[in-house]
Computed example of a mutant assay.
Amino acid sequence: MKSLESIIRSIEPLNQDSMLLTQQRLDSLTKPPGSLAVLEKMACQLAGIQGKLPITLPNKAILLMAADHGVAVEGVSAFPAEVTEQMVYNFVNGGAAINVLARHANARLILVDVGVKADFPAGLPIRRRKIRKGTDNMRYRPAMERPEVLQALQTGMDMVNELADDGIEVIGLGEMGIANTTASSAITSLLAGKPPAQVVGRGTGIEQKVISQKIRVIEEAVARHKPDPHDVIDVLAKVGGLEIAALAGAVLGAAARRILIILDGFISSAAVLAAYRLCNSVQPYLLASHLSEEPGHAAILQALGLEPCIRLNMRLGEGTGAALGMTLLDAAVKIVNEMATFGEAKVAEAYNAGDKEV
């Protein structure tokens, strides 16, 4: 088991030679240079991570961390806290949106219980990594103790190591935890330097009065516990979530194992921002699948220096956007490997429109 510090030190830059050769291949294909835009960038990024040519369709997994949040009792969500447990059973039974889209993307769905209040029966396809049964109510007490955050980070790193050893090359980030948009908003506010009112959104579809309540709860929690924005562990301990901390650890572990990390929406991206603040060397391994409707998501992507691949006005979470991003990644790989070059197709590489009328 590698320590957090050793994982961070082991993260290496992307292979620039592979990226250059892939871009040269893309420029030789029967299209105007750069005309496939994001797909070309995705292909080059994957080449830099795989470090080989030709790039190949990667083995993919959605890593879905689940945990409960004590702050749910403050009425910050449209759904009661027991929905966390109920949705985990829905994932197990294959009935959730992420199940459908993971199958569509040909990705494995890995369910991990890091902090659900309920205990699930043996025999279910759930990785049992429970650290504690939900966080405390951040409005009055720190959400976690510092050692629990470190344990959650280690859990995320360990899970990624297991997946990497099993041949996974791309990981999408997913989560489940009622009230986790409250924790994510608090984290984003602190780590992106934005007031809570600028990053709090509708979450599960709450009305304006509930949004105001969510903002008030975050402001009170920050005023009471005084998390240090320069100490990521302190921020996660005081206003974070177990699944968010575990996902942050997964990001660090994935970058160390040269695995592409596909972000989902607001909550998983808050975890990525925490990982980035711990080690900005993870940035080249990040791919933003989409832009969530949650206002804090744009602030996070800006802080990470990422552009979303698609804009579908989504705000579900679970890893759904990441799964869709995987389908685009597969398309990018196929473009590189299956499209004809100008020479192969006997198509002129340039046309001087001034010589002839069009």
Rank of each mutant, 00 (worst) to 15 (best):
V272D: 00
L190Y: 04
V83E: 12
L53P: 06
K117W: 12
V251K: 05
T155E: 12
A37P: 02
L260K: 07
I310H: 11
G70Q: 05
A250I: 04
R103Q: 14
L252E: 11
L328M: 15
P284G: 10
L304Q: 07
K238Y: 03
G240R: 04
A72K: 07
A43P: 13
A270G: 02
D330R: 08
L263P: 01
N15C: 08
D330T: 10
T181N: 00
P142L: 03
G240D: 04
K334V: 01
A183Q: 00
K2L: 14
E5M: 01
N90I: 11
R146F: 00
S212C: 11
L287V: 14
R103M: 10
P80W: 02
G167N: 14
V149M: 02
G325R: 06
M87A: 02
E338H: 15
D228T: 08
G134F: 01
D17S: 15
L4T: 09
K41M: 05
R9G: 06
N15A: 10
V358L: 12
L63T: 15
M176I: 12
I244T: 04
A122K: 04
S6I: 01
A66Y: 07
G167S: 11
P142E: 03
T204A: 14
V217P: 02
A223K: 14
G203D: 08
G319L: 03
D228E: 13
G94S: 06
L190Q: 11
V251D: 06
G95Q: 12
N99A: 03
C309R: 02
S269C: 00
I262K: 10
G325V: 06
A332L: 05
I62A: 13
L273N: 05
K52N: 07
K356P: 00
A43W: 14
T135L: 10
S268G: 01
E307F: 06
P80V: 01
R311W: 01
P121S: 06
N137D: 08
K41E: 12
H225P: 11
A271L: 05
I267P: 08
A43L: 13
S281N: 15
D231Q: 07
R132H: 01
D165W: 02
N15V: 07
V232R: 14
E82H: 13
A96W: 01
A122P: 00
L247Y: 00
G70Y: 09
E307V: 04
P196H: 04
R132P: 04
L312R: 07
N313V: 03
